[in-house]
Simulated assay, not measured.
Amino acid sequence: MVRFNHSRGVLVLGIESQGLAILRSLGRAGISTVLLDQDSWGVARFSRYGSPFFRTPRYSDHRAFADFLLEVADRLGLEHGGWTLFPTDDDQVEAISRFGEKLSEVFKIRVPCWEVVSRVLRKNLFYTTADELGIPHPRSWFPIGELNPSDLEYPVIIKPVTKTRFGPEFRVKAIKISGPEDLERTIDHLASRVPIDDMLVQEFVPGRGDCQMSFASIRTLDGRTAGFTAVRKRQHPPEFGKASTYVKAEAIPEIIEYSQRLLSHLDYHGVSEIEFKRDSGTGVVKMLEMNARFWGWHSIGSRCGLDLPRLLFDDIFGSSDVMPGMRDCSAQWVKIPTDLPIALGEIVAGRTSFIDTLRLYLGIGNVENATFSPEDPFPFFAEIALIPYLMARRGY
């Protein structure tokens, strides 16, 4: 338990594994935290680094969510300018960026303005930016109401323009379409539940989950960047993963230049993950999307000498001028409860071995476990106990 300091700390926005990783990183450094989530239960609430918890309004109600952050600061008597916000969800990012001027009267904000964030969260704008910079990405069609389904080469996918409405409604990241009739039928079905302008059609990029890779980084206001690259070895569900289950840090030089070009063009600052996928047919690497927040497996950075929550905190409050730069390492990250069924399928298919999986789960080597830590074991067991609840509430 960290002694609570009203003058400096972090509101950790999210109580799942990414929030837990932030809590542990800051707690080990003696930094005060407050946990907030729109849901009542998550693994971070069981950490030894426990802190006050508040249930928020729905993240999608951006104004109400932003107002609640100010209310929490007032309730706890937090010193103005001494606390900051670490988001883990796209709607949180949108709320902070849209109401940043008001929030910055109380908090130190390191989320970019809405002009920048909108070009990250809105995929049609994101791909337009990629075109301007000459960065390859999957061919996309938007708005889909103007499409002639017979003009497309199949398969294609339908995915959301933003994650915030499509994902919670259908609990999938994308839908694979086999032909024109399938496309028309699927659009009609989706349009009965979400606005048609919240969807786009995109070419299907062939390749398993392990063709997906990421550039993870923190970028300062003056453009200094520290980061590393990693491969998504397994994900859940396997084809269009909503979440990674096993990630391995590897050197992937070709995506670093694309990523730094994008971050520089946006004048982006803060933490981010930029996702790519290698087309297994052509070998071309294509940029998929960007997370302008902490993501599920960010804690692997600590195994590469880049403790992202601590680096961001120190950068915001000027605790250190050191920014480590780019790192190459061979660390691994795993979330056992969600990885286990995927790994069993890989073992049966002969794509991985039982021994390698066992070594990974036992933490042999440079392995970061999403929820288990010898110094803080309870979140892991709480996660197992919460699986039925999480399946019902979030689709896990």
Score class of each variant (00 low, 15 high):
1 M>C: 12
1 M>H: 09
10 V>S: 06
11 L>K: 05
14 G>H: 04
16 E>A: 13
19 G>D: 06
23 L>W: 03
24 R>C: 03
31 I>G: 07
35 L>F: 14
40 S>R: 14
43 V>I: 11
52 P>E: 11
53 F>T: 03
53 F>A: 01
59 Y>M: 01
69 L>V: 10
69 L>F: 08
71 E>C: 02
72 V>G: 09
75 R>P: 06
75 R>E: 15
76 L>P: 10
84 T>M: 03
86 F>M: 12
93 V>K: 05
94 E>R: 07
94 E>Y: 08
97 S>P: 03
97 S>I: 09
97 S>E: 07
98 R>G: 02
105 E>M: 12
105 E>R: 12
108 K>I: 01
114 W>L: 09
116 V>H: 10
119 R>M: 14
123 K>T: 00
129 T>D: 07
130 A>F: 11
131 D>Q: 14
136 P>W: 09
145 G>S: 15
149 P>N: 07
152 L>K: 05
153 E>W: 00
156 V>P: 03
157 I>T: 08
164 T>Y: 06
165 R>Y: 10
170 F>K: 10
175 I>L: 13
182 D>W: 02
183 L>V: 02
184 E>W: 06
184 E>R: 10
189 H>Y: 14
194 V>D: 01
198 D>R: 06
199 M>P: 02
203 E>C: 03
203 E>W: 10
206 P>K: 07
208 R>I: 04
208 R>M: 08
209 G>F: 07
210 D>S: 11
210 D>G: 03
210 D>H: 12
210 D>Q: 11
211 C>W: 14
212 Q>R: 13
217 S>D: 07
218 I>D: 04
218 I>C: 08
227 G>L: 03
227 G>K: 04
231 V>G: 03
232 R>M: 12
238 P>V: 08
255 I>D: 06
259 S>F: 08
262 L>N: 05
263 L>G: 03
267 D>E: 15
271 V>R: 00
273 E>F: 05
281 G>H: 12
283 G>R: 02
284 V>P: 01
285 V>I: 15
285 V>C: 07
289 E>L: 07
295 W>Q: 03
297 W>D: 07
298 H>I: 05
299 S>M: 11
299 S>A: 14
302 S>H: 09
308 L>P: 09
316 I>T: 10
318 G>M: 00
325 G>K: 05
330 S>I: 04
331 A>M: 11
336 I>T: 12
337 P>Q: 06
340 L>P: 01
341 P>S: 09
342 I>S: 01
352 T>D: 14
353 S>Q: 06
353 S>D: 06
355 I>A: 14
361 Y>T: 04
362 L>C: 12
364 I>L: 15
365 G>W: 08
368 E>Q: 12
371 T>D: 14
374 P>M: 07
374 P>H: 08
375 E>D: 13
387 I>V: 15
388 P>R: 02
392 A>I: 08
393 R>W: 01
396 Y>F: 15
